[in-house]
Computed example of a mutant assay.
Amino acid sequence: MTKISEVDAKAPASFEEDFAALLDESLGADEGFEGSVVTGQVIRILDDVALIDVGLKSEGRVSLREFGDSEIKPGDFVELYIERYEDRDGAVVLSREKARREEAWTALERAFANNQRVTGAIFGRVKGGFTVDLGGAMAFLPGSQVDIRPVRDLGPLMGQPQPFQILKMDRARGNIVVSRRAVLEETRAEQRSELIKGLKEGMILDGVVKNLTDYGAFVDLGGVDGLLHVTDIAWKRINHPSEALTIGQQVRVQVIRFNSDTQRISLGMKQLEADPWENVAVKYPVGGRFNGRVTNITDYGAFVELEAGIEGLVHVSEMSWTKKNVHPAKMVSTSQEVEVMVLDMDSVKRRISLGLKQTHRNPWEQFEEEHKVGSELEGEIRNITEFGLF
């Protein structure tokens, strides 16, 4: 039989143990909030901190700097991250910045799972790429994922809200990799489809010079590329597209030909300008003398530009009355200003035959006038052959 004295002795100990257990359980429940995001109510503002009640045993303090430009006042409800249940002063350690980060991560994981675009802003440069703020969560943007083409100046893109595609993310490690290029490529494909549907020959479009080659320039029309052949850049002679265009230049072009099967687009710039060959026969009549500039020299003659877009050929046989079997480069040079005579005109084939020697008097006619048959002359022997002397 248990004695009353023994029961009385055990009761206080049992009561203390139960109370301790209840206290531990209560504290344990509060401590379980650490690392989670909760909603708190602003109680009051003290200098540079906000005193906030998050439903725990003690209130927490948050620096007003963490709220940025947002103004808060007593009674407002805010989302906060519980860092620690109690600091050395017995207060709950809260963070608005980490709450924003946690909220952002949750939203980003949902977007990643649904293959949706997210909005962010490039704000810094790091090795191999850039850092992007995705509404509180930091992401890495590789340099190769910034644009479809290499970007020389990233200044205009810095700090600007724009869409990104999440390539991969690891919440445990805090890593997010995004791409702006993927968004541009998807948008480009959509634009290409829309452009191809409505594309017709004769349309005038604005584009950007994407690449230069020996035979022309590729122009980005906003999702689809077209070829601007070197002969369709200008009416005047252009030996290489770089003489008139630069990569990245904004240009206005006309669709000359479009093959819907191969989706090849031929473009022209000179077609948007007046054709200098109109009324060329009136401006440059046969027999007329005009000044021009030598633009090109070949084995069979030299091309002379009379005006921008109008060139004629001086055949080697029409260069000199006296010099025979001499290369044209021995008689004229590129960019030299010369006087020529129009010998023939074919405006349909856009051909003009010019003469250089015709602007000078024929020395044989002059000799015939000055020296009659039977007159005596003195001269220098230039060559001796079996059949006579020169």
Rank of each mutant, 00 (worst) to 15 (best):
K3C: 15
I4W: 10
S5H: 04
S5V: 07
E6H: 10
E6V: 15
V7F: 15
V7N: 02
D8K: 15
D8C: 15
K10F: 09
K10W: 06
A11N: 13
P12T: 03
E16F: 10
E25S: 13
L27V: 13
G28K: 12
F33D: 07
E34N: 08
S36G: 05
G40D: 02
D48R: 15
V49R: 05
A50E: 00
S58E: 06
D69G: 09
D69I: 01
K73C: 07
K73A: 13
F77H: 12
Y81S: 05
E83G: 15
R88L: 11
V93W: 09
S95R: 13
S95H: 12
R100K: 15
L108I: 11
F112L: 04
A113V: 04
N114R: 11
R117L: 15
G120E: 03
G120F: 00
A121E: 12
I122E: 08
F123Y: 15
K127V: 12
G128M: 06
G129V: 04
G129E: 04
D133I: 01
L134K: 05
G135C: 03
M138A: 03
P142T: 00
P142I: 01
D147A: 15
D153T: 12
P156I: 03
M158R: 01
G159S: 04
F164V: 06
Q165P: 11
R171Y: 08
G174L: 06
V178A: 08
S179T: 11
R181C: 09
E185S: 00
E186W: 14
E190I: 03
Q191C: 00
R192M: 09
K210G: 06
N211V: 08
A217F: 06
D220V: 00
L221N: 08
L221R: 05
L221E: 02
D225S: 07
G226V: 00
L227N: 06
L228G: 00
H229C: 01
I233Y: 01
K236F: 14
K236I: 08
K236Y: 14
R237F: 09
Q250N: 06
Q250I: 07
V251H: 04
Q254M: 09
R257S: 07
R257W: 06
S260G: 03
L267S: 09
E273C: 10
D275Q: 04
D275E: 05
P276G: 01
Y284V: 02
R289D: 01
G292T: 00
T295K: 04
I297S: 02
T298E: 15
Y300A: 04
A302E: 10
E307L: 09
E307R: 12
A308T: 08
S317R: 13
T322P: 01
K324V: 11
H327C: 02
M331T: 02
S333I: 12
S333A: 13
E337H: 13
E339G: 13
E339I: 01
M341C: 10
L343C: 00
D344L: 05
S347E: 14
V348M: 13
V348N: 15
I352S: 08
L354E: 02
K357L: 09
Q358M: 14
H360K: 14
R361S: 12
Q366M: 14
E370G: 07
H371R: 07
H371V: 10
K372P: 01
V373T: 10
V373A: 14
S375H: 14
E376D: 13
E378W: 07
G379E: 00
I381K: 02
R382W: 08
E386C: 02
F390C: 08
F390H: 14
